[in-house]
Amino acid sequence: MQEKTGAEKYTSVQIPTKLVEQIEKRIQGTEFPTVTSYVTFVLSEVVSETEPEQKEALSKEDDERIKDRLRSLGYLD
Protein backbone atom coordinates (compact mmCIF):
# COMPACT_ATOMS: atom_id res chain seq x y z
CA MET A 1 0.00 0.00 0.00
CA GLN A 2 2.70 2.48 -0.87
CA GLU A 3 1.63 3.46 -4.35
CA LYS A 4 0.58 6.93 -3.33
CA THR A 5 2.72 9.85 -2.27
CA GLY A 6 1.00 13.07 -1.38
CA ALA A 7 0.56 15.67 1.30
CA GLU A 8 0.50 13.30 4.23
CA LYS A 9 3.13 10.80 5.23
CA TYR A 10 2.05 7.23 4.60
CA THR A 11 2.89 3.99 6.27
CA SER A 12 2.23 0.36 5.45
CA VAL A 13 -0.67 -1.63 6.81
CA GLN A 14 -1.03 -5.30 6.08
CA ILE A 15 -4.40 -6.43 4.83
CA PRO A 16 -5.29 -9.71 3.14
CA THR A 17 -4.38 -9.96 -0.54
CA LYS A 18 -7.86 -11.22 -1.30
CA LEU A 19 -9.37 -8.07 0.18
CA VAL A 20 -7.03 -5.90 -1.89
CA GLU A 21 -8.16 -7.75 -5.00
CA GLN A 22 -11.77 -7.14 -4.08
CA ILE A 23 -11.08 -3.44 -3.56
CA GLU A 24 -9.24 -3.24 -6.88
CA LYS A 25 -12.34 -4.56 -8.58
CA ARG A 26 -14.62 -2.28 -6.63
CA ILE A 27 -12.73 0.93 -7.50
CA GLN A 28 -12.64 0.23 -11.22
CA GLY A 29 -14.42 3.06 -12.98
CA THR A 30 -14.78 5.08 -9.77
CA GLU A 31 -13.04 8.27 -8.73
CA PHE A 32 -10.66 6.34 -6.46
CA PRO A 33 -7.40 6.00 -8.38
CA THR A 34 -5.74 3.61 -5.94
CA VAL A 35 -6.50 1.07 -3.24
CA THR A 36 -4.78 3.41 -0.77
CA SER A 37 -7.08 6.30 -1.58
CA TYR A 38 -10.13 4.07 -1.15
CA VAL A 39 -8.95 2.53 2.12
CA THR A 40 -7.96 5.96 3.47
CA PHE A 41 -11.41 7.30 2.65
CA VAL A 42 -13.26 4.41 4.25
CA LEU A 43 -11.13 4.43 7.40
CA SER A 44 -11.44 8.21 7.76
CA GLU A 45 -15.19 7.89 7.63
CA VAL A 46 -15.21 5.11 10.23
CA VAL A 47 -12.81 6.87 12.58
CA SER A 48 -14.64 10.21 12.34
CA GLU A 49 -17.90 8.46 13.17
CA THR A 50 -16.51 6.73 16.24
CA GLU A 51 -14.43 9.51 17.80
CA PRO A 52 -16.25 10.34 21.07
CA GLU A 53 -15.72 14.10 20.88
CA GLN A 54 -16.97 14.40 17.34
CA LYS A 55 -19.91 12.09 17.97
CA GLU A 56 -20.96 14.26 20.86
CA ALA A 57 -20.69 17.47 18.89
CA LEU A 58 -22.10 16.40 15.54
CA SER A 59 -24.64 13.64 15.17
CA LYS A 60 -24.89 11.44 12.11
CA GLU A 61 -28.08 13.30 11.19
CA ASP A 62 -26.25 16.64 11.46
CA ASP A 63 -23.44 15.28 9.33
CA GLU A 64 -25.79 14.04 6.61
CA ARG A 65 -27.77 17.27 6.63
CA ILE A 66 -24.59 19.31 6.27
CA LYS A 67 -23.20 17.08 3.53
CA ASP A 68 -26.48 17.32 1.59
CA ARG A 69 -26.34 21.08 1.77
CA LEU A 70 -22.68 21.19 0.75
CA ARG A 71 -23.46 18.96 -2.23
CA SER A 72 -26.28 21.25 -3.30
CA LEU A 73 -23.88 24.19 -3.15
CA GLY A 74 -21.22 22.37 -5.17
CA TYR A 75 -18.70 21.99 -2.34
CA LEU A 76 -18.79 18.22 -2.07
CA ASP A 77 -19.16 15.29 -4.44
Binding site: K4, G6, A7, E8, F32, S37, T40, F41, S44, E45, L70, G74, Y75, L76, D77
Partner: peptide, 18 residues
Protein backbone atom coordinates in the same frame (compact mmCIF):
# COMPACT_ATOMS: atom_id res chain seq x y z
CA UNK B 1 -10.25 21.77 -7.24
CA UNK B 2 -13.43 23.35 -8.60
CA UNK B 3 -14.63 23.96 -5.05
CA UNK B 4 -14.41 20.26 -4.22
CA UNK B 5 -11.33 20.54 -2.04
CA UNK B 6 -13.24 18.97 0.88
CA UNK B 7 -13.74 15.79 -1.13
CA UNK B 8 -10.00 15.60 -1.83
CA UNK B 9 -9.13 16.23 1.82
CA UNK B 10 -11.54 13.53 2.98
CA UNK B 11 -9.82 11.06 0.69
CA UNK B 12 -6.37 12.15 1.87
CA UNK B 13 -5.54 13.12 -1.69
CA UNK B 14 -5.08 16.88 -1.43
CA UNK B 15 -1.40 17.88 -1.70
CA UNK B 16 -1.54 20.57 0.96
CA UNK B 17 2.24 20.87 1.36
CA UNK B 18 2.35 22.19 -2.18
Amino acid sequence: EGGKIITSLMKGMFPIEK
